[in-house]
Design a protein around this nucleic acid. Sequence first.
DNA 1: TAGATTGTTAATCGATTAACAATC
DNA 2: TAGATTGTTAATCGATTAACAATC
Lengths: 215, 215
Amino acid sequence: MKSSGQSISPQVVKRLPRYYRYLEDMLAEGLVRTSSKELSAKSGLTASQIRQDLNCFGGFGQQGYGYNIAQLHNEIGKILALDKKNKTILIGAGNLGRAVAAHMDFAKKGFVLIGIFDKNEAASGQLVNGIPIRHISGLDDFCLENKPVIAVLCVPKERARELTENLIRLGIKGFWNFTHFDIGNQFPQIAVENVHLSDSLMTLCYKLDRLGDKK
Amino acid sequence: MKSSGQSISPQVVKRLPRYYRYLEDMLAEGLVRTSSKELSAKSGLTASQIRQDLNCFGGFGQQGYGYNIAQLHNEIGKILALDKKNKTILIGAGNLGRAVAAHMDFAKKGFVLIGIFDKNEAASGQLVNGIPIRHISGLDDFCLENKPVIAVLCVPKERARELTENLIRLGIKGFWNFTHFDIGNQFPQIAVENVHLSDSLMTLCYKLDRLGDKK
DNA sequence: TAGATTGTTAATCGATTAACAATC
DNA sequence: TAGATTGTTAATCGATTAACAATC
């Protein structure tokens, strides 16, 4: 892998999971080698861009041959740090929170879900994916004791800001944010992925409305 | 509004829902006017970019004054076409599908959810958000009769491709895609928003791993 | 060796930022 | 009028694409 010198463009980083996914598929199909041309056909990206992207991290291919699928898959996994076991808590066990807790395979993506919290007393003790829902009042103690580094936020917008600030104080370093509140760069040294489902839906509405225009 | 001439850059479109959200907040706070400078402070985007973005659609501001919040909110709503009532069906009533059906306020984003489908016989008849789950075998007839234009896909990856092709044949024009399968540009004249939750999670893993690097 | 495909540099394209005249 | 802030053009920056020599 290249010396971790100049930082990688965000655009490139966003494409890495996609490459990883395609390679996984090919691996499942029992294929052994691929090329930027083949990946281009699969993804719609240009072969040039794919080679450019991969070369940010090192020369994983071989002239005249292409890329070994298993090796490249493994390398991208390492780049994404998917072998990590980042301790993760989820706050807000409503519809969405429970679905995320139950649906996501955290373990395969570098995370371990170790706690679920909700403000609703009635939910306390219920199991989601084998993990008990705890009352939010126990959050601080839990964090001091278990030192999670990632929080998944599935709470209503109103509570998001205060909760975020509190969690940072408790040592949380990264947020997977499903709330309507933007966790922006007001907090330095924190990693954030905002998942704004309603923004996505509104964008779809726009695209649909303009479908006729293009061409 | 400007003549719908040259098409708008995708980057600009993605920012519109954000502006809409900020304006909604300000409206709720009872504020009347704002400026690109104020929106800049709120969003972290530059004032210049905000003015540039809004001007793709028309001159909604006034020199020396700024923007009227209610008016701008309304204009962006029209641009996004949120007043539409696009008939929508959701396929796959597992954890995630149910949460999406129950959690999203489709009506406020230009959609009406008119049907939910699942292959599991046992789920048939259950209500999610007041809408009964139907067996997938009735999908074709339902579409012919009710003519939905949007499909929300929450099925396993394996079934995504075939289902997508079938739905296009049935007249679906837009997809909100939660599956692992990329609905790409292999289908022209279709609007797509891919929501790849696991890609987002992997990206977070990467960012967390590199937190120390940046200064 | 001949054919293929990478790694990498240079050219192009698009998006963001800066600057400022117009004007409320 | 003086002050503020837009709309818009020009300059900068970053990302994508094209091209090709290196080499397996």
